[in-house]
């Protein structure tokens, strides 16, 4: 399989590529939702919108996988065909996009918390200078909250890299070195499942390869988490 041709490179590339697509969806939507909830929303809107968005984080990933494979994939394929593009029914875009939806609440909730914990005195200082709300957010609150926001994004990335079911169900299972989001590609997690589904002997080199992939996945996400948690903690200490 892959080991004869390219080694693990396409798998790692595919993992980061799909995670990248997911973050392209999750960061803008999650961050802007977090900002809106923290700074603009009335208590009423906040009271309802926040838990509703958090439901997205509580939905099991297998459900997202089903949604991506059954609805989003075919929809993108059809959309692409109507525009004259060739889109795989198991495109990286479908898997990554749906994964992004799943990650929205992680980013919105954490950045909402982080933004709310920026002291009011900074806001007052900016408003008193005659700044509008968005200027205050962009120029004072956002830089002040940046470490915490970066932390939340890193946690999101680590989620995306470790996510399994969406990729298994909605993206390809064959490793494919590509940067075209309309093609299908595979990830570390999906490869582990492909190799280990069904019975297999433990001495088998493929099984060992799967465990090696799992180990590298663990290390990558562990590093991300350590960095992210440290950044968030540093940030908390600064304002508490």
């Amino acid at each position: 399989m892959y080991s004869d041709t390219f080694g693990a490179v396409p798998i790692f590339a595919g993992t980061f590529f799909i995670a990248f697509i997911a973050m392209c969806v999750a960061i803008p939507i999650g961050l802007m939702s977090g900002i809106y909830l923290a700074e603009y929303a009335s208590t009423k809107v906040r009271q309802y919108a926040k838990p509703l968005i958090e439901i997205l984080a509580g939905i099991p990933t297998v459900v997202y996988g089903f949604f991506a494979a059954l609805t989003v994939g075919p929809f993108l394929k059809e959309l692409g065909t109507s525009m004259g593009l060739e889109v795989s029914a198991e495109s990286a875009l479908a898997a990554g996009g749906v994964m992004g939806i799943m990650i929205i609440p992680f980013i919105s909730s954490l950045s909402d918390d982080v933004i709310t914990s920026v002291p009011q005195s900074l806001r007052d200082g900016s408003y008193a200078m005659g700044a509008t709300k968005s200027e205050t957010i962009k120029r004072v609150i956002f830089p002040a909250a940046l470490p915490g926001i970066v932390g939340s994004i890193l946690l999101g990335v680590s989620r995306a890299i470790g996510e399994t079911m969406i990729v298994v169900m909605a993206s390809g299972l064959a490793a494919n070195l590509t940067l075209n989001p309309l093609e299908s590609t595979s990830t570390i997690t999906a490869q582990i499942v492909v190799i280990l589904i069904g019975d297999q002997a433990f001495g088998d080199p493929k099984t060992q390869a799967a465990f090696a992939l799992g180990m590298s996945l663990f290390l990558v996400t562990l590093c991300l988490n350590i960095v992210a948690l440290r950044v968030v903690k540093k940030y908390r200490e600064k304002y508490e």
């Binding site: 802007m32 939702s33 809106y36 968005i53 997205l56 929205i104 968005s134």
Partner: peptide
């Protein structure tokens, strides 16, 4: 003021998108 309105709109549409997905 236009920038302010735009920014607010981005925020609102982000919430709207998230809820729409749901």
């Amino acid at each position: 003021y236009k920038a302010e309105q735009r920014f607010r709109l981005y925020g609102l549409s982000a919430i709207f998108m998230a809820l729409l997905f749901l």
